[in-house]
Design a protein around this nucleic acid. Structure first.
Lengths: 110, 110
DNA sequence: CGTGTAAGGAATTCTGACACG
DNA sequence: CGTGTAAGGAATTCTGACACG
């Protein structure tokens, strides 16, 4: 995925009505999930909410979990956990790369 | 670019106001370029225009040409020409692939 | 030709609140 | 807790038209 493609996915340009159509969620539900910190749309100058494709996908996941009876507080925890896991992975990955780099220089310098 | 990334770029989800902000063009100009067949937004159920990121980029190119004094009719011709050229390229490419394939089987079958 | 603008109507979006459960 | 709804106001969008050049 190039930087440009990513910008399409992350750029906040979709109004709440379209998001509602795309996700099947009511406008009320979408606003409520924001209140519960599950999503963070951007605000336009005039104050209207703008969402990215990424937000839309997140909302679809939320919808699935809600259908399974998972509460928003639980969903939020899951999201935070997943972020932590990702962070941990990256730390591990960095450690390993560091190790390789060190080994490399060890051999080169003797 | 994966199929998914492409769908982000082509999906018509942006309202004309946002497109105006993104391109710097007035709403009037954007509607006029549609009248001149330079772009084709999708219509929502209610009749409002929906644009893709691809449309936005096209509009920025149009804006550049208009600044150079190029008329919309001319811009339309350029666009058609470019499409034809692309078509020609693909045809040539297909012919070449076909040739390679034929050569391949020739060798295999004797 | 390309773009601005006023006109009138319809649909959207926003917030805070009450309702129900 | 999660969602629907009526309320009132503000901003958007749409079309057809007139203006200017």
């Amino acid at each position: 995925m190039t930087i440009e493609d990513k910008s399409y996915k992350e750029k906040k340009v979709i109004s709440i009505g379209i998001v509602s159509e795309l996700t099947g969620l009511s406008v009320r539900q979408i606003r409520y999930y924001e209140e519960r910190k599950l999503i963070s749309p951007q605000r336009s100058t005039r104050g209207t909410r703008k969402y990215s494709f990424s937000d839309v996908e997140k909302l679809m996941e939320i919808a699935n979990k809600r259908e399974d009876g998972v509460q928003t507080a639980e969903i939020l925890k899951d999201m935070r956990r997943r972020e932590q896991a990702l962070k941990g992975d990256n730390q591990l990955r960095n450690k390993m790369l560091e190790g390789q780099l060190n080994a490399h220089f060890k051999y080169r310098n003797r």
